[in-house]
Amino acid sequence: MGPLFPQELISEEINILIGFFIGIGFGFFLEAAGFTNTKKLAGVFYGYDFVVLKVFFSAAITAAILLFFLNHFGIMDISLTFYPKTFWIPTLIGGFIMAFGFIIGGFCPGTSICAAVTGKIDAMVFVLGAIIGIFAYAFSFDALWKDLRNSGAMGNVNIAEWMGISDGLFILLLTVVAAVAFFAVTIIQKKVTANRDYEL
């Protein structure tokens, strides 16, 4: 029964090796989806390309559905996995800072790594910038961020429970909203690109 490593059913070396292979899969499909193209990534905010939205939501929904089934049928225990604890204030503010980073820099960390190693100089600069940012954050942690980072603590919060509905209903609602969004953005994209040529 999963997860295997947290229950010490596989050794640390095997775990790290598996991590490497899972990374290969992740990197392969990020690149294949076109996430190394910064113009495609920024397109989601300007309406000329919605690949980010499509890939992002279909990945999250696929994982949510499968993890639900695995957990429900006792194949793996989600409570033993990495479950991001909710600290809503720093997450919201951090998310907003990342929004600036995304629009100005044109990447997020995962995509910038993929793009950097496939030869995009701007992505290499972005990764460098991210490392500088983490350095800056680390050295100013005590002075600036410490209290903010730990504010708004809510513990492990499941959003379906928080909204007072069942997990299955939440996944269904999320998927229906996403499916509607997928159709809507296809139409938006057609309209936006009809008026003007966007080089990708």
Binding site: T62, I65, L172, T175, A179, F182
Partner: peptide, 24 residues
Amino acid sequence: MNKSSILLVVLLVIGAFGTFIIDT
């Protein structure tokens, strides 16, 4: 949306329906 995209999205919706039905 082309055919295969529609098919994949429908697949996701069916999966989500499955979770809903099993959960209820």
